[in-house]
């Protein structure tokens, strides 16, 4: 029966082999690269430099700026993506003919590529775009608002795209949770005089607590990885005002070829995401999570 005991490993081999090559080994490699430096080119082995990359990071004003931007991203985007999709999910959980078409409509921004979304929103933000026409049409302002070209606004304008693309995704996660709530609970609540939105306050919210936590953590993790929105819409400008950590990593690795320095940043970001994931595990035992 020797052949039989090998069977599970043969089934696992392709997936595990590829995951080792594309995740496990690169992750270890990233750790190693953070403590080294390529002196001349990428073909000769890198030199051990200890904590030098981390020290450089500590003194890098732009890194702190991007870390601040990423943190601001979290603080603004996560609460919106934790609450708005829940309201949407409650709406599309109603028994209504054709409700699946509404679900599909709310979900559709999710399947559109970030490049297309970025291009579309750049057009909406244009001086003669939809938003400025509305603002001027309502006589709120005479001159167009520089949505993407003002250091004060650019980051927030990019956030709007992240929110728009995220709504439908988290709505579906909430929908899964809502469909697990027994209808009898609402009937019982109705007998006790709780109806309409009161019901959701009394029943939905407490029961959805684990899902709210899950969505908060998932959206927080993805907010720390924002790259494509920024790449397409602002390239991190003006004056680094919309530059995120991942965009700065990309810039260092592939434009300045500071491979080791970029890895160090990636490692710091990873530790940050890891702590979010651990928080997730600690707080969210009630629900089976897809990503932890």
């Amino acid at each position: 029966m020797k052949g039989r005991s090998l069977t599970p490993y043969l089934f696992l081999a392709p997936a595990l082999g590829l995951l080792t090559l594309t995740v496990v080994w690169p992750a270890l490699q990233a750790f190693f690269l953070s403590f080294t430096r390529y002196e001349t080119d990428l073909l000769s082995p890198p030199v051990w430099v200890g904590w030098a990359n981390f020290a450089q990071l500590w003194r890098d004003g732009v890194f702190w700026k991007t870390l601040g931007n990423t943190f601001l991203y979290l603080v603004v985007v996560v609460p919106i993506l934790a609450i708005a999709p829940l309201l949407l999910a409650i709406l599309v959980n109603q028994p209504l003919r054709g409700i699946q078409w509404f679900r599909a409509a709310y979900y559709s921004p999710v399947i559109i590529s970030m490049v297309v979304a970025g291009i579309a929103w750049r057009w909406l933000y244009a001086p003669n775009g939809l938003f400025n026409q509305l603002v001027q049409g309502l006589h709120l302002r005479d001159t167009p608002i520089p949505w993407l070209t003002s250091p004060q606004l650019a980051l927030f304008s990019v956030m709007a795209v992240t929110v728009w693309k995220g709504l439908g995704y988290y709505m579906v996660i909430y929908l899964a949770g809502l469909q697990g709530i027994s209808g009898e609970l609402y009937e019982a609540a109705a007998l006790d005089g709780s109806d309409g939105w009161r019901q959701h306050w009394d029943i939905t919210l407490p029961l959805m607590h684990p899902y709210i936590l899950l969505v908060s953590i998932l959206s927080a993790i993805s907010a720390t990885k924002v790259f494509e929105e920024v790449y397409v819409m602002t390239q991190g400008g003006p004056l680094n005002s919309s530059k995120t950590v991942v965009y700065y990593i990309y810039e260092n690795a592939f434009q300045r070829l500071e491979i080791n320095y970029a890895c160090t940043m990636g490692l710091v970001l990873f530790l940050f995401i890891l702590s979010l994931s651990l928080l997730n595990l600690k707080l969210g035992r009630q629900v089976e999570m897809p990503l932890s």
């Binding site: 995951l19 496990v24 992750a27 690795a253 491979i259 490692l267 990873f270 932890s292």
Partner: peptide
């Protein structure tokens, strides 16, 4: 381990993958 691979952001792996 399979689930743990999901927590690691692709952006951290991309540089070592590039070298590989």
């Amino acid at each position: 381990l399979t689930l743990a691979t999901l927590v690691i952001p692709f952006q951290l792996l991309v540089i070592p993958i590039f070298l590989i």
